[in-house]
Each structure stands twice: as structure tokens, then as C-alpha cells.
């Protein structure tokens, strides 16, 4: 706000401008002091180790250390892009990530809104507590439960289908079911957990606004549209932008556990590939190169999304 004032003042010459800035800095000294521990933290624990990114251009040997390992330029990248699997990996990762954003991302918002509409606080708390439990189960457990339900040998669902005279379905082997399962499992595990952040945002809505709207005869849907949604809009946008930063991170463990010989052609993604060729073989430089590629894609997406948000008059993350 003060900034605006300073800019619009026509008499501002360079000297007084700088003086004003000093005055602002002095006035905000507390704010800078508050920032200090955080900045030290980010420099120490995030930026000092950042040289590790350069491993992507070296042939890192742990025994030789960072400095003595030889530079290899773009070798790891050309190996990665030249891998016969590259395009398959890109396609699989892209599709799974898109499924995730299309089908999973909106759900916590919807469930949070529905929870918000519950009239009885008891119901709301009870359901909230139940749906956030799966977040704490490891993927190993979830995948083994999926097996118990969907295998063809005594799986509950297939037994049901067979009992009704249907033909058993190879849910876990058929490549056609793979993406559905991955997305459904994520929805099952994380929707409840994801609602928490939106519920926190909803808690900040001024109840007086609803009362005023009701006086004006607005029905519940209109209240939702004109009061509730705008209140959490910026949270949604920020989360979406941040999510795009990790767009190519599909998660490793779940997919690794769901992969098998029959669905690998649709299931193998960057994260599983880098695990089996890079990490488990101790090829740090190669793993780092793949990671760097993913980060750069994320960076581009984040900035593009941020610009887009700004164009629509949103705050964005920057």
C-alpha cells in the first residue's frame, strides 16, 4: 500500500526515493529480524548443499568425493534422452500426473465443501476423523489390501463377479486397469487428508457474510458460490501451482508395488525407472540428472501457472 503511494507521488526524485526506502527499512526492522532465522535456515540447509545439482554433470564417485570426480558434461542427459524407454516413460508419467490433477486434485476441495455444509458439528468431526485415517497407512498395506480384493484367486470382488455368473476380470494384470487403480488408490488414501487444509481455510470465513446473504434470500448454492468458494479460492490456486512444481513426481512406492510384467508398458514412470537403473545401482550422477530434468519441467510449469494466475487477477505464489 505504501509502495503504491510512493509510486504515484509525482514529485518523487531519486534521492528522496532512496531516503524513503531507508525509512521503510528502518520502520520494518522488526520484520527483517523475524525473517533472519528463516533465511539462515534456507541458506544453510538448502542452498549450501545445492552444489549437489552439479553431480548431474559429473561422474560422481563417493570415494573420490565431489571435487575429484570427473566432469562429463551432458553425458548423463544424452544417455537419459537416448534411452529407448525415454518416450514411454515420459508418456506414462505425463498421463498419470494428468489423471492425478484431473481426478484427485478437486476431490479434497469438494469433500471439504460438503463437510462444511453438514449442519451437525458432531457428524462433521466424526466423518473428518474417519476419512483421514488412510493417510497413515503405508503403500505396502494399501497394495496388499488391493490384492486381497481384486485378485482372480479368491479376491473378494472377483468372487462376487463369479457368483453373479460374470467372468473374472484381471484387474491387477490388465494394463487397461492400471491407471484407474493408481488414481483410485491415491483418492482413497489422500482425499481425507487433503481436506484438512481447505477446512482450515473455510474456518476463516466470516459467518456474518452468510447471515447477510440469507437476509437477501440467497439459497445455499448461491451462498456456496458467492461466499465460500471465493474464500478458499486463493488457497486452491496456490496449491495447484505448487502441485505443478512436482508435476512429474508420480511417487515411487505405490507404482513400484503395483507394477508387474504385464502392465509395465503403461506403468513404468520416471520415478520407478530412476530407482531401478540409478539409485539401486549407486549411479548418483545419473539419478541426479533425471531429477534435474524433472525439476526444470516443474520450474517451467510453476512460472507459467503463476503468470496465468496473475493474469486472472490472482495473487499467485510470487
Amino acid at each position: 500500500m505504501n509502495e503504491d503511494l510512493a509510486i504515484t507521488r509525482p514529485s518523487a526524485i531519486a534521492g528522496s526515493h532512496r531516503k524513503q526506502m531507508w525509512r521503510r527499512l528502518a520502520r520494518n526492522r522488526w520484520l527483517y529480524l523475524m525473517l533472519l532465522p528463516g533465511i539462515v535456515y534456507f541458506i544453510l540447509f538448502k542452498y549450501v548443499p545445492m552444489y549437489g545439482v552439479l553431480l548431474a554433470f559429473k561422474n560422481y564417485q563417493p570415494f573420490l568425493g565431489f571435487l575429484k570426480s570427473e566432469w562429463v558434461g551432458m553425458e548423463h542427459f544424452s544417455r537419459f534422452f537416448g534411452d529407448p524407454l525415454f518416450w514411454m516413460l515420459l508418456k506414462n508419467t505425463f498421463i498419470l500426473a494428468t489423471y492425478n490433477i484431473l481426478f484427485f486434485f478437486p476431490l479434497p476441495i469438494i469433500v471439504a465443501l460438503l463437510l462444511n455444509e453438514l449442519r451437525k458439528e458432531v457428524y462433521k468431526r466424526f466423518i473428518q476423523t474417519l476419512i483421514y485415517i488412510p493417510h497413515f497407512m503405508s503403500w505396502v498395506v494399501i497394495v496388499s489390501i488391493a490384492y486381497l480384493f481384486f485378485t482372480t484367486e479368491g479376491g473378494l470382488v472377483n468372487e462376487g463377479i463369479a457368483a453373479m455368473g460374470g467372468e473374472k476380470i484381471q484387474f491387477l494384470l490388465d494394463p487397461g486397469w492400471f491407471r484407474t487403480f493408481i488414481t483410485a488408490e491415491v483418492i482413497w488414501k489422500e482425499t481425507g487428508w487433503g481436506t484438512i487444509i481447505f477446512l482450515a481455510a473455510l474456518a476463516g470465513v466470516d459467518t456474518q457474510l452468510y447471515e447477510a446473504a440469507r437476509m437477501d434470500g440467497a439459497n445455499r448454492f448461491r451462498q456456496l458460490w458467492h461466499i465460500t468458494l471465493p474464500a478458499i479460492r486463493s488457497t486452491i490456486i496456490i496449491l495447484l501451482i505448487l502441485r505443478l512444481g512436482n508435476f512429474l513426481d508420480t511417487g515411487f512406492e505405490q507404482i513400484w508395488l503395483m507394477l508387474n510384467s504385464l502392465n509395465r508398458e503403461v506403468g513404468e514412470v520416471f520415478d520407478t525407472y530412476v530407482y531401478s537403473t540409478g539409485i539401486s545401482q549407486g549411479q548418483y550422477s545419473y539419478s541426479t540428472a533425471v531429477g534435474l530434468f524433472k525439476s526444470i519441467v516443474g520450474l517451467i510449469l510453476v512460472f507459467a501457472a503463476n503468470q496465468l494466475a496473475k493474469r486472472f487477477g490472482e495473487e499467485g505464489i510470487l
Binding site: F42, V48, P49, M50, G52, V53, L55, N246, Y284, V302
Partner: peptide, 13 residues
């Protein structure tokens, strides 16, 4: 925000 996208990795940390 940059630290959310890029990290030095396990060994440098």
C-alpha cells in the same frame, strides 16, 4: 520456492 523444485540431494545434505 526455488528450494521446492531443486535440491542438492541426500549426500551433500
Amino acid at each position: 520456492i526455488f528450494t521446492m523444485l531443486f535440491s542438492g540431494g541426500m549426500i551433500p545434505t
